[in-house]
Nucleic acid binder design. Structure first.
Lengths: 146, 146
DNA sequence: GAATATTAGTTGTTTTTGTAACTAACAAGG
DNA sequence: CCTTGTTAGTTACAAAAACAACTAATATTC
């Protein structure tokens, strides 16, 4: 198994990003999955509602760059578990305003705490300035600053 | 939709990494998917074989941190399309030695060229040192340097 | 203000992935 | 050797994602 080529997969950004993303999600994923039975899109919905209060499925989808069918299914599962409430919007009766219920709030608070710790732990691998620079570069790549 | 909380999802590393990975893979993915009908694990297998020559499924899996069932399925689809050959190993008759066929080689060459261009293009968003630092940090997060 | 297009969200169907159980070959210990 | 354990890879089944077609409400245009 001898490398016979200049190109290196291990330096190809999309590959590297995917590996880093997968690896760094693993531990946190295990927590929201095993402990709360949540899927990735589900905790994302929870976090958006936790951070911004009321939002529609559409708004969440736009912000999280997630397809509406994924959001729709996440929302109905979360509503079933009474983590979120759905209220038909006054101005536009196609849309529903979503919000965390009290029990959703408490799950969110716990997960948020875990996320903060986890993030801080990942961050400890980098020096003060590096972490900020990394986030800046990732935001640029993700197109979040546009 | 007012932010009411100090925690910011947009700075949470696992989230950010996932978004950046997804976003930066998108264009390249469209190429290997639409143009060559390859799945992500499939092009990964192709790239590993292209870079290292002969490898077993096990070796590819270890290097790409990919589960053996995913590799197994990728390998059988690639073999079906005659992009790779499978030869039972001399020393260990459980294992198969995989290699690109000539037509696999040519697909690999094309994709590799596209990947190089694409990577260079992503890289142009960063200054000289930044790109190298980013890769270094990602490798650390991915656990590739261990 | 009816006809047409657009939008919010859902549902159904097909791919792809994850997980567990399996087969066949090898390794070690007695 | 021959039992027990491990390893390479496959297969079967369940969970999740992708994609297309749909319903119902709202906008637009003539």
């Amino acid at each position: 198994m001898v490398k016979n080529d200049e190109f290196d997969l291990q330096n190809f950004l999309p590959y590297l990003l995917n590996q880093a993303a997968e690896q760094s999600s693993l531990e946190f994923q295990r927590i929201y999955k095993d402990r709360y039975g949540l899927l990735r899109t589900e905790w994302r919905v929870m976090f958006h509602l936790g951070m911004y209060g009321e939002m529609t499925a559409k708004q969440i989808g736009a912000r999280a760059m997630t397809h509406k069918t994924k959001i729709s299914r996440a929302v109905s599962r979360l509503a079933q578990r009474r983590y979120i409430s759905r209220t038909r919007s006054e101005n536009d009766r196609r849309a529903e305003v979503l919000a965390l219920t009290p029990s959703g709030q408490s799950v969110y608070q716990e997960l948020r705490g875990i996320a903060e710790d986890y993030d801080a732990r990942l961050d400890r691998r980098f020096s003060r300035g590096e972490g900020a620079l990394l986030r800046m570069m990732l935001r640029r790549l993700a197109g979040l600053d546009d």
